[in-house]
């Protein structure tokens, strides 16, 4: 028997809603587990790639240097890279900060907040550095397919994943393309 296709997932600057939506495929999740093996993913808590992966699923936009590193490593390891959800596709809700300069954002949050006493902008080297703005994934690496939605419904994820595992292009009907 040929080895099962390997799938990796990650959440960059998102809310994990897209991962929740994946769990929302109900009993089809049993089929899914029969069809694929999960590599690096919060679902099985594997922290780093064990080898090449067939399908990579990216949730969330790119807001800091760690996001860039993770996204680039997904591009390197995954044959097909799928951006999932509004944050990955457009920056989404986190990218509302793009309308305010980063310095002002940080000052408002850590120095000027009405409940703050003696605030300071965090600068621990362990904390990923924020980028000037939140970028959609396709502005950082090549993305093969995009699944819109906030989050994409379980049917969107299932339809697309089922097609990809058969080596077909995911085709979404009218009711499956939604931006909210």
């Amino acid at each position: 028997m040929a080895a099962k296709p390997r799938v990796a997932t990650c959440s960059l600057t998102g809310c994990f809603g897209c991962h929740m939506s994946l769990l929302d495929i109900d009993e089809r999740i049993i089929d899914l587990i029969g069809l694929v093996d999960f590599d690096k993913s919060p679902i099985d808590d594997i922290k780093s790639f064990t080898g090449p992966v067939d399908v990579g699923i990216i949730e969330g936009g790119v807001s800091n240097d760690e996001n860039v590193e993770v996204l680039r490593s997904f591009r390197e390891h995954c044959g097909v890279l799928v951006a999932v959800g509004e944050c990955a596709l457009t920056g989404g809700v986190p990218s509302m900060r793009n309308l305010v300069p980063l310095k002002e954002c940080l000052e408002e949050a850590y120095l000027k907040g009405p409940t703050l006493v003696g605030g300071a902008i965090p600068n621990d080297p362990e904390i990923p550095l924020l980028l000037d703005r939140v970028y959609p994934c396709h502005e950082v690496v090549r993305i093969d397919y995009m699944l819109p939605g906030c989050p994409p419904s379980a049917d969107v994820l299932w339809t697309a994943l089922a097609a990809l595992l058969k080596g077909e292009e995911p085709k979404l009907g009218y009711e499956l393309i939604k931006y909210d």
């Binding site: 509004e86 989404g92 809700v93 990218s95 509302m96 309308l99 906030c150 931006y179 909210d180």
Partner: peptide
Amino acid sequence: NHFCPICEKSG
């Protein structure tokens, strides 16, 4: 700046 997920007009 069209943030569909938070817009009351979405849909």
